[in-house]
Simulated scan of single mutants.
Amino acid sequence: MTRGKTLAAAFVVSAVGLGFIAAHEGTLLTAYLDPVGIPTICTGHTAGVQLGQRASFEQCNRLLVLDAGVAGKAVARCTHVAITQAQYDALVSFAFNVGGDAYCTSTLARRLNAGDCWGAAAQFDRWVYAKGRRLPGLVKRRAEERRMFETGCEPQEV
């Protein structure tokens, strides 16, 4: 294994990773409809949410950790090569946003597992659409996830 890399199953999302997700998701204590109409509360939490629902900051923090853990399990289950903590955090943010199943079946995961770190990194740019609409917030998030992920790729030969 390359220095600083280990299998994804050994990681948990870092405080930096949780902060990254929170910064991109935002946190609202009252349920709302996300840009594609999904009832959401707290920091991107969607399971069982109903409009009008309210939560405390403490509940939102617990849900963020829980939801990031679910995304992390998908990343661990579907990533079979050694990665860095920063790469894991970027992948957890990605899976948190698009869903674990979408990550697992993505070309991003396939390329990463084939050993093509840079090819995997390029795939982040493709995931900027929600219901066919290119969303500026997703463009920004994916660019930042890609930069975080690329810190673990070996330098490209020129």
Rank of each mutant, 00 (worst) to 15 (best):
A102Q: 09
G137D: 03
M148L: 15
G132R: 03
L28K: 15
V128G: 03
V65I: 13
D101V: 15
I41W: 05
D125T: 08
T84Y: 12
A102F: 10
A109V: 02
A95S: 08
T84E: 11
H45R: 11
R54W: 06
E25L: 04
A86K: 14
T27Q: 10
T27R: 10
I83C: 07
P39F: 02
V81S: 11
E145K: 04
G69W: 06
G48H: 02
E144P: 03
F96V: 09
E150T: 13
D67N: 06
M148D: 10
L108H: 01
R77G: 15
L64P: 05
E150D: 08
V81K: 12
K131E: 07
N61E: 14
R110L: 10
D101E: 15
C153G: 01
V98L: 09
K140P: 02
E25V: 05
T30N: 11
T107C: 08
A143S: 10
C104F: 11
V128D: 03
F94P: 01
W127Y: 02
L63G: 00
G99K: 09
L112D: 04
R141I: 00
A95P: 01
R133L: 15
K73C: 12
D34I: 15
L108T: 04
G115K: 02
T79K: 00
Q50I: 14
I41C: 07
R142T: 01
D116K: 05
G44H: 10
E145Y: 00
T30G: 11
G72Y: 01
C42H: 02
T40M: 00
R111Y: 11
K140S: 08
L64K: 03
T79C: 03
T79V: 08
Y129P: 05
D116I: 05
Q156I: 14
A95Y: 01
L29I: 09
R134Y: 06
V49R: 00
P35C: 09
D34E: 14
K73V: 14
Q59H: 09
A47N: 14
L63Y: 11
G99T: 03
G137N: 05
A120N: 01
Q123D: 09
Q85S: 13
A55C: 11
K73S: 13
R111I: 07
F96A: 03
Y32E: 03
D116V: 08
E145L: 05
S93Q: 05
A95R: 00
K131H: 10
A95N: 00
R126K: 14
R126S: 15
H45G: 07
G99R: 06
W118G: 12
A76Q: 01
V128C: 02
G48C: 02
R134Q: 12
K131P: 02
G44L: 10
R54E: 09
R146C: 06
G48D: 05
L33S: 06
V92E: 00
